[in-house]
Simulated scan of single mutants.
Amino acid sequence: MSERFRVAAKKNDDVDIVFFIGRLDVTSAVQAEEFIQNLIETGARKIGIHCGELSYMSSAGLRVILGSFMQIRELDGDVRLSNLKPEIKEIISMCGFDEVFSIYPDDIALIESYSS
Rank of each mutant, 00 (worst) to 15 (best):
F19R: 13
Q37H: 13
L39T: 11
S28A: 04
I91W: 07
L81A: 02
G52E: 01
E33L: 11
R45Y: 06
I108A: 14
Y56M: 10
E87M: 01
G61A: 06
P105L: 09
E33Y: 09
S28E: 10
E99K: 10
L110F: 04
V30G: 09
R63S: 10
L24F: 04
L81I: 03
E41I: 13
S68D: 13
I92E: 05
L84G: 03
V18I: 11
F69R: 13
E41H: 04
R80P: 06
I40G: 09
S82I: 01
S68K: 00
V64R: 09
S55D: 14
R63E: 13
D76L: 07
L24Q: 00
I92L: 02
A29E: 03
S58F: 03
D106K: 10
R23W: 08
Y56I: 00
I47Q: 13
D107W: 12
E34T: 11
G96V: 12
D25H: 02
L66M: 05
K89L: 00
A44W: 15
L54P: 13
T42E: 14
L75H: 06
S93P: 09
P105G: 10
H50D: 15
K89I: 02
R23H: 11
F20T: 01
K46S: 06
L84I: 09
L81R: 02
Y104P: 05
E53I: 14
R73H: 15
E99C: 15
I47T: 01
S58H: 00
K85S: 06
G22F: 08
P86Y: 06
D78K: 05
I72T: 08
A60I: 01
D25I: 02
I91V: 15
I47K: 12
Y104K: 04
G77I: 15
H50R: 12
S28T: 02
K85W: 12
S68R: 04
G77N: 12
R73M: 08
G43H: 08
P86E: 04
F69W: 12
I91T: 15
V26S: 14
S59G: 06
D78N: 15
Y56T: 00
I72F: 03
M57I: 14
A60M: 02
D25Y: 02
